[in-house]
Design a protein around this nucleic acid. Structure first.
Lengths: 147, 147
DNA sequence: ACAAAGTCTATTAAATCCATAGACTATATT
DNA sequence: AATATAGTCTATGGATTTAATAGACTTTGT
């Protein structure tokens, strides 16, 4: 499961993406609208800024802005940034590769083979979803609901 | 990532599946061969037995046996049993469904839509892998290595 | 000068994970 | 019947991670 932190990060980014044409967005505003503890959110946004996803401005009229286009912000990337590997075992992770301590032979491990298939399928899906796509899908779902 | 417990469970089952024609298999034997702390393994095997995957015999000549055919033991099931949901958010989990506390409208949530696609892709892969398939793949990989 | 806003580091409380201890029960063998 | 073997069960402890908060600091617009 995603940690709350990761979910908060995604929700916050979605909120910012939706209001991105306008002025910088306040932490307090995101916190209230998305029901995220403000102090916790601060540290999350900081992390996203350090990664280059967000840009921030201090002082009056300050706040957060996207530093990339929504279509270039991939949700798999966000999840990995906050929660670490998506793969279920370290020995099949690209970004966080690390041999499994117990395994003798990685090349012939049947379980690893299965986990690799799973990772590949997961990545394929995650690659399809950028922030832009999430927002687009959401408005589409809302429209088809109203009818 | 899988917990150690889940990985131990899978490794232990794989070991038992490989030796299933013969007499019941000792906890101690699995522990030594797979490098799993014995006491920890006890509790894991107990859990698998309670779920009906394993059968046990007490006393002399006792030990553990599979209670199902390897082809009917699905690794997704094992992972869910030990670690809980595979889905990344509770609101798209079949087995552990639970609405996301923060979300207002599940039906129109863009993130949920993405997570649902991911869950479906994951399940599709996991359904392909039974214990039998894992063991088969492992021996196949070993053969092609020797050539 | 001052108020608004983000920055940074440290700390805490609760939960979860990994592992172990120890007393108990059932079974086979002699 | 006695004994050794092997699983059962409950409780507990330490380590790590997660979620959240505190508080002092910096930057910027007016």
């Amino acid at each position: 499961m995603l940690s709350k932190k990761a979910k908060y990060a995604l929700k916050a980014l979605e909120y910012i993406a939706k209001h991105n044409d306008e002025a910088p967005i306040l932490i307090a505003e995101i916190s209230e609208n998305q029901n995220i503890p403000k102090k916790f959110l601060e540290t999350i946004l900081l992390e996203l800024r350090r990664d280059g996803i967000l840009e921030s401005r201090k002082g009056k009229n300050g706040g957060y802005l996207l530093n990339k286009k929504p279509k270039d912000i991939n949700i798999g990337h966000i999840i990995r940034l906050i929660d670490g590997p998506i793969a279920l075992v370290p020995c099949v992770s690209y970004k966080f590769y690390h041999p499994c301590s117990e395994c003798e032979n990685e090349a012939t491990c049947g379980l690893r083979y299965a986990m690799k298939q799973l990772r590949e399928a997961s990545n394929k899906i995650l690659d399809r979803f950028s922030l832009a796509e999430i927002v687009r899908k959401e408005t589409e779902l809302k429209k088809s609901r109203k009818k």
